[in-house]
């Protein structure tokens, strides 16, 4: 599959995750979100950026439970809970946010 943004084509897997991490840009993230009818707020970016840092360090996209706990540690308890994260990313915080972050589907999501 492929994603077409502003005339450029980006390769994705069958669920819309970017095939090449290096294709990622902030504009691409916003475009992917827009396709899902989601506008990237500062709170969305906080989670997406966190995921990119996590991937950079561990080379994996975290499972949702792990993400929730890690967000809580970094950004505080009011953000490290599934209610907050599901409000931001109704398709599932790990899955949806990983997609916008240009990461593969999280390990542990089947």
């Amino acid at each position: 599959m492929a994603l077409e943004i502003n005339g450029a084509t980006y390769e994705t897997d069958e669920e819309g995750y970017l095939a090449n991490l290096s294709d990622w840009s902030a504009e691409l993230a916003e475009a992917m979100a827009a396709q899902d009818g989601c506008e990237m707020s500062e709170n969305h970016w906080e989670v997406v950026n966190f995921l990119r840092e996590y991937y950079d360090e561990y080379q994996i996209a975290p499972a949702v439970r792990v993400l929730t706990k890690a967000i809580g540690k970094r950004l505080g308890k009011d953000k490290g809970n599934s209610k907050y994260l599901y409000e931001l990313f109704p398709y599932g915080p790990a899955k949806q946010a990983c997609k916008y972050a240009g990461l593969p589907k999280p390990t542990g999501c089947v």
Partner: peptide, 14 residues
């Protein structure tokens, strides 16, 4: 190669 062994450090989080 991709250094997948970086993920060992995440096992505690899991």
């Amino acid at each position: 190669l991709k250094n997948f062994t970086a993920a060992f450090a995440a096992l505690g989080d899991y």
